[in-house]
């Protein structure tokens, strides 16, 4: 699967439009810089101090001033028109459309709701390719920012001020992104992973996500499930079909099917899950998950249970 990580590798129609505008501005800027630098370099070489030359004291030429007021003004107006056109192209008003996905930012993870299907997930976003999608952004605490470079635009995620963004993903693949607005200790570990899939694959994923969690499949996993309840994990985390009380932390109904842990901090493997459960602060400093003080065999059991939640 291709990974998209760069502004220069657009994966949406909108990003492509913005990138074209960027190249136009880059071209104009380069041209202006070459002119300015050319004049400076010429002056520096040509008008070096030499003996016996007394420079003239020309103090003003109005037509020159008019020239370098008018030309930049024309360029500025042109760029403004370009900006307005691209703005309307990529992010028209949402006009009461229902969002296809609502993203709620938390310190330091992403809560995901797919309103039509009622699916709740966390951190790893799945979206269909080729559809004009509306995303809605809310914050549960401080100001965050949603930035997937290959999607083109970014949007601030502000408490009490929901925002929206339009997307038409053109190429399937894995898109990496991150929180762009400094949001505290865990800011660097607030990764976004977007899996852009064919509409069929996306529907299948959504159908799978809407199923309740699978029951523990081994004795060890059953012990893990018991620990999950006993150690108060349920106060913050929910597992649909098991206990759905906590909403403060990522939904774990299908945590075993995700590729990473702790918002993209660790690959999702049993070893890493054990590491994470043992000492969350060591993995992601500042994280609000407490160290629960589990024995090694308890960690193993809990890890077996969680990794079984495919």
């Amino acid at each position: 699967m291709d990974a998209f990580t760069s502004v220069l590798k657009p994966g949406t129609k909108e990003a492509g439009d913005i990138l074209s505008a960027f190249y136009i501005v880059l071209g104009i800027a380069t041209l202006i810089f070459i002119i300015v630098a050319g004049l400076v370099v010429y002056a520096v070489i040509k008008f070096r101090r030499r003996k016996g030359r007394e420079p003239g004291q020309l103090s003003e030429k109005v037509w020159l001033e008019v020239l370098w007021i008018t030309v930049p003004l024309v360029i500025v107006i042109g760029l403004f028109i370009l900006a307005v056109r691209v703005m309307l192209q990529v992010n028209p008003p949402s006009l009461g459309h229902k969002p296809d996905l609502t993203v709620v930012a938390h310190q330091w993870w992403w809560e995901l709701h797919y309103p039509p299907s009622g699916v709740t997930a966390a951190n790893e976003i799945h979206l269909p390719v080729g559809k004009h999608l509306l995303l809605r952004f809310e914050s549960a605490d401080v100001i965050h920012g949603f930035w997937v470079p290959s999607f083109g635009q970014k949007i601030d995620v502000i408490p009490g001020h929901p925002n929206t963004m339009w997307l038409t993903i053109t190429r399937p693949g894995l898109y990496l992104g991150t929180c762009h607005s400094f949001c505290g200790m865990g800011h660097a570990h607030m990764g976004i992973r977007v899996f852009a899939q064919s509409p069929e694959d996306f529907s299948a994923w959504l159908a799978h996500q809407s199923r309740p969690a699978s029951p523990p499949s081994s004795v060890e996993a059953a012990q893990g499930a018991e620990l999950f309840r006993e150690k108060n994990c349920v106060n913050c985390h929910s597992i649909s079909g098991f206990m759905t009380t906590g909403r403060e932390a990522p939904d774990l109904t299908h945590v075993g099917s995700r590729t990473t842990l702790a918002a993209g901090t660790l690959a999702n493997t049993p070893e890493n899950m054990a590491k994470w459960l043992k000492d969350p602060q060591a993995v992601k400093m500042g994280v609000l998950m407490p160290e629960i003080g589990l024995e090694p065999d308890q960690i193993k059991a809990l890890s077996a249970y969680l990794e079984g939640l495919k």
């Binding site: 913005i18 501005v25 990529v90 635009q153 970014k154 762009h180």
Partner: peptide, 10 residues
């Protein structure tokens, strides 16, 4: 140029 700002700010 606003959309470029969306792209590159922060």
């Amino acid at each position: 140029t606003v959309p470029i700002d969306w792209d590159l700010t922060q």
